[in-house]
Amino acid sequence: MLEVTRLHVFYGRAHILADVALSVDKGEVVALLGRNGAGKSTTLKSVIGLLRPADGEIRFDGEPIAGQPSHVICRKGIGYVPEERRVFSDLTVLENLEVGRQAPRTGLPSWTTDRLFDLFPNLAELRTRPAGRMSGGEQQMLTIARTLMGNPRAVLLDEPSEGLAPVIVEQMAATITELKRAGLTVLLSEQNLRFATRVADRAYIIEKGRIRYEGTMDALMADESVRSAYLTV
């Protein structure tokens, strides 16, 4: 469903991604693992169009999307949940959701605020609270809900578990499993291997802007040498 090949990305003169390739099938949850600064966020930002790749191809449903503006990519059905949350802090929860709202897609059940409040019960109580005055965990839930309002077919989650209390991490894992059950395709970046094992089917490991490993989550868990080479600090 989502296919990245030969992706090269620069920040100014710095060559950040070199020849990155990965693919995600429909309905799959894939984890992109790597240490700090490995290039996970850069990869996701390139897919959603916030960064312009210098070279390479990105296809969504077979259609090339590399280099297009992010709103066009989003409307094709890719949702993006940024690492730094980036909620609109002056806007209320409902208004944040409104910004994310896009027309329903034919043939797919669409997300409504009511459905989202079922999925994230604590948001329901905060409808009119400005997002700037919510806890980190609540904000993380809000960014996911906001992205779902666009009725995406695939979601990019940048480190969904980062900086969350253990009980919230638990909740986040449940949410992702829920999304998978609803038929969504998920590509998430993670440093937290335990979290990734809970939710992902397959994994890629990125290190210094290159893909170093590709395999099922089970295979990765069985391969102690790979994990110690690329993941433990």
Binding site: H71, P82, T147, G150
Partner: peptide, 8 residues
């Protein structure tokens, strides 16, 4: 930028 990434 985020508004753009949300499809606007």
């Amino acid at each position: 930028e985020m508004v753009g990434a949300l499809g606007v």
